[in-house]
Simulated assay, not measured.
Amino acid sequence: MKVLSQFSARPAMDGDGVNIRRVADFTNTKFDPFLMMDEIKSDDEQDFIGGFPPHPHRGIETFTYIRKGGFEHRDHLGNVKAIRAKDVQWMSTGSGVIHSEMPLADTDEGLHGFQIWVNMPAKDKMRPARYQDTSETLNPEVSNNTGATLRALAGDWEFSGQEKISAPIQGLAGGAAIADLDLGPDAITELVLKQHDFVGLYLYQGTLSSTHINTGKNTDRDNNKEAKQYIEGQYLILDSQTLLQMQAGSDGAGLLLFAGKPIKEDIVHMGPFVMNTQAEIQQAVEDYQAGHFGEIPA
């Protein structure tokens, strides 16, 4: 794989004192069509017990994926859903959503999950909100013979020359696609992602090496070449036109894959609002203060 840029997730705090790791760019749009990725990963409930009390959004799509533990989602549209391990939830907030995400009462063995923000094009930022989750639907998985398993979370994916798999959630802004890739110890895998203009990778567990796999299944390690090593917490922007080849370390690896088409529009960001102009941000604030976003039913 060819790495164009490399970033490290930074400690941050959001909601009611929730400790997270964050990768974000609201200025140079390096991750376009994506804006931000937050990771919650802790076995100590004090790191997340406060959750995310009611708050608004406008102009973005939020995509939540849970690997361990769970949240209860509530919004002003009347949706009340428990999102647990392997579930995903998508809100295309459009003109406005108020929602909350609070840890489930039975989340007593820790929490590991992600919230990803996807930008919306100007033409869609004021459309009605949409909501979908997979609490009653399985996200499809496909494995290869080297110990790698890909779980499609959004969009369509082709893995190791096998038949395309499609996630239940489709139609994200910017043609965004998201997948969870689990690599066993020393597992090798490759993906062709030439159909996407943007491809990113976040390593949330283990270590990873970039490799050059030939028909004999030799790697950089086998050829005594220097393979670049990546560690947990790193976010890589990749050349989508180069075959994505990688190998996990001896303890395996877990990573999120991001793909899509850049929207290439001006971004003005303030807290939970992402619009195209400062005037639109000010209007969002005024609309929220005036109660136009509604409220979560009791």
Results as ranks from 00 to 15, higher is better:
61 E>G: 14
229 Q>V: 14
23 V>N: 09
139 N>L: 07
262 P>W: 05
107 T>F: 02
278 Q>L: 13
53 P>C: 05
272 P>A: 09
114 F>G: 04
158 E>Q: 15
139 N>V: 06
263 I>V: 07
8 S>W: 02
165 I>E: 05
215 T>Y: 10
117 W>C: 06
124 D>Y: 03
158 E>K: 13
86 K>I: 06
105 A>Y: 08
205 Q>K: 14
107 T>V: 13
205 Q>G: 01
156 D>W: 00
238 L>N: 01
15 G>T: 06
85 A>N: 14
242 T>A: 14
199 V>M: 03
97 V>I: 15
107 T>L: 05
204 Y>A: 00
203 L>D: 00
55 H>R: 14
136 E>D: 10
171 G>R: 04
62 T>M: 01
158 E>W: 01
269 H>D: 01
245 Q>M: 14
216 G>T: 09
69 G>T: 07
68 K>T: 13
159 F>V: 08
79 N>C: 02
10 R>C: 02
174 G>I: 05
81 K>Q: 12
146 T>C: 02
28 N>W: 08
172 L>R: 08
46 Q>K: 15
183 L>C: 10
25 D>P: 01
5 S>E: 15
41 K>G: 00
152 A>K: 07
95 S>Y: 09
182 D>Y: 07
115 Q>G: 02
229 Q>A: 13
197 D>S: 14
276 N>S: 11
171 G>F: 02
284 A>I: 06
71 F>N: 02
52 F>R: 08
180 D>N: 15
128 P>G: 12
120 M>E: 10
130 R>M: 14
247 Q>L: 08
231 I>Y: 14
282 Q>C: 00
69 G>L: 08
16 D>S: 15
218 N>L: 12
92 S>C: 11
224 N>V: 04
141 E>H: 01
278 Q>Y: 11
93 T>N: 09
